[in-house]
Amino acid sequence: MALNLQDIPRVKTINKADFLKYYFNPQKPIVIERFIEDWPAYTKWNLDYMKAIAGNITIPLYDDRPVDYKDGFNEPHAKMKMSDYIDLLKSEPTKYRIFLWNALKEIPELQKDFTFPDFGLRLMKGIPMLFFGGRNSHTFMHYDIDLANIFHFHFEGTKQVIMFDQKQSKYLYKIPHSLITREDIDFNNPDFKKWPMLKKAKGHKTELKHGEILYMPEGYWHYMRYITPGFSMSLRAIARNPKNFSRAIYNLLIMRNYDNMMRRLRGQKWIDWKNEQAIIRTHENSTLIV
């Protein structure tokens, strides 16, 4: 048995009016296959180019270890020179990923390689974020703290994506006071005996190739696995839905600080309690669902 996932629709290209009408307004995901072929980045951006242009920069790295109470919010697990990291990506599988790296801050010339597309949303131009990963490395299932509209541009290799909208949260074993599901769920090959409510979740899937764009609507859960080494860039626009915008403010100002405070006060007991509650609350919800 597998997760109940539908293929994300695909178009070769799209204009602003159609994007707003068919995907943004109803908050549906879409893959756009050939929108950026006129960008210099389309032909230039690969691992070798990133090594050449950013090789001496020390970058933050993350892996798939469980959350520890001593870890700060989004605190990196290791650091490495970009040149050494790219060599590692190309030589062997590694769980180390670059996550939410604002490369343009340190390498302003990258800005010359792309333009901010006009999809009818005001993109936040100060924070284009880059993400890198080695073969079979993956993110935990999570949603972004600001519940933004995200345009995810993939470069080099192939990346697997599984997504769920917020309505599916009650089936996903969400960790309270957090943005992730249980970290021991393998969304690539879930154990339904251990996590039975996942059978009820209805989601979306796709595989991204070089130059393709994935639009992720506000607050969508997403799990990403690098089938081959590669990297992506995300551009984001603030949540337009008032409920999502208010949740983003809550997450940024209250939830994140409360969670950090409880880690300091209760240590690992806080993490363990949250993991237990993810199961208890998900199974309690199941008794309320007809």
Rank of each mutant, 00 (worst) to 15 (best):
H177D: 14
Y42W: 10
W221S: 14
G55Q: 05
S83W: 01
I86G: 10
N241T: 02
G126D: 00
P40M: 08
M82D: 06
E106R: 06
D113N: 12
I145Y: 15
K174L: 11
I57C: 00
L147Q: 04
H210I: 08
M224Q: 06
S137M: 13
R240S: 14
K81W: 12
K112I: 15
W270N: 14
L253Y: 15
L253E: 12
F231C: 08
T158G: 13
M262Q: 12
R10I: 02
L235G: 00
I279T: 08
F116K: 09
F245K: 10
P190T: 10
L121Q: 02
Y22Q: 08
L104K: 04
L3M: 04
D63E: 08
N257D: 07
Q111F: 03
D48A: 14
H204S: 02
P93Y: 01
S83L: 04
L47M: 09
N244R: 08
H204D: 00
P66S: 12
Y49T: 14
G126T: 02
R266I: 05
M141H: 02
D71I: 01
F140R: 03
H138P: 00
I32K: 06
A54N: 05
R240G: 10
N136P: 08
P66E: 09
K170T: 04
D87L: 13
Y23F: 13
Y96S: 10
A248H: 11
A17K: 09
K70R: 12
F187T: 03
N4S: 15
D71E: 09
K51R: 14
S232N: 05
L253K: 15
I180W: 09
P76S: 13
I36S: 09
P26F: 04
M1D: 03
D64S: 14
R122M: 11
R281E: 15
S286C: 04
D259L: 07
E276L: 07
A278L: 04
Q166F: 06
K112A: 15
R10Q: 09
N275Q: 15
R263T: 03
K199P: 07
M233A: 10
D7P: 12
N260K: 07
P40F: 00
I150N: 05
H204N: 01
T115W: 15
K274P: 00
F35R: 03
L235C: 01
M233P: 11
N251M: 04
I30E: 10
F119L: 11
I8C: 11
I32D: 03
D165S: 11
L253R: 14
S137R: 11
K51L: 05
G219D: 12
A248M: 15
N136C: 04
H222E: 07
Q6V: 14
E37L: 06
H142I: 04
Q6W: 02
N46Q: 01
N149K: 01
F155G: 13
Y23T: 05
A278I: 00
R97M: 14
K90M: 12
G134A: 09
A201F: 12
G211Q: 03
M197T: 11
D64A: 14
I227Y: 06
P117H: 02
L198V: 10
A41R: 02
S178F: 02
F164S: 03
N241H: 08
N15D: 14
W273S: 11
N4L: 13
E284P: 09
D63S: 03
K21W: 00
L130P: 05
